[in-house]
């Protein structure tokens, strides 16, 4: 007799568990799209850094080669959401209202790192700035800012 499949653990509970254990990666791995992009993350010093591991499926221009702009946008948005979830005291999944990405230079075929910085934490909306970089943090490949709805619906 085969055992019934385990009941899926709601994302919010996974997050609470990941926070207790200090294991950021366990939470990320629960999100299929984060796995598809090859996202990993953890605290480096006081910062929560999200890393997109290089993979050929991320390429937008094979001739250079360069990362697809969409992958950088997704990484930046993910970094902001993870920052909000990790720092927030009350757990509500943030909903993206708007995101604006500035593409500063082409993304090389290497790992890319990103972090989000909350610039204003309001009762209903939160503003976040994000940056993504590769080998040299001083020369980001892309920056972004986003506004999230953070109230319970």
């Amino acid at each position: 007799m085969t055992a019934p499949p385990p009941l899926p653990v709601p994302l919010i509970d996974r997050l609470a568990e990941a926070k207790r254990a200090g294991d950021y990666q366990a939470f990320m791995d629960a999100i299929p799209y984060a796995r598809f992009l090859g996202l990993s993350g953890g605290k480096i010093g006081d910062e929560l850094i999200t890393t997109m591991r290089y993979g050929d499926q991320l390429i937008g221009n094979p001739a250079l080669p360069a990362l697809h702009g969409g992958t950088l946008g997704a990484l930046l948005e993910s970094a902001a959401i993870f920052e909000l979830l990790w720092r927030a005291e009350t757990i509500v999944l943030p909903k993206t209202i708007t995101v604006t990405i500035d593409y500063l230079r082409s993304g090389a075929a290497v790992d890319t790192h990103a972090r989000g910085i909350v610039t204003r934490h309001g009762r209903r909306v939160t503003n976040v700035r994000m940056e993504a970089w590769q080998a040299d943090r001083a020369t980001p490949v892309a920056t972004a800012h986003a506004i999230f709805l953070v109230m319970r619906s």
């Binding site: 899926p8 994302l11 999100i31 299929p32 799209y33 702009g69 969409g70 946008g73």
Partner: peptide, 22 residues
């Protein structure tokens, strides 16, 4: 593989970003 919220099955905003960018 595009799902951003496994509780609901809604796809990730990043996938829509990639679609609109491309």
């Amino acid at each position: 593989k595009l799902v951003g919220n496994p509780d609901t099955g809604v796809i990730h905003g990043g996938a829509i970003t990639a679609l609109l960018d491309g």
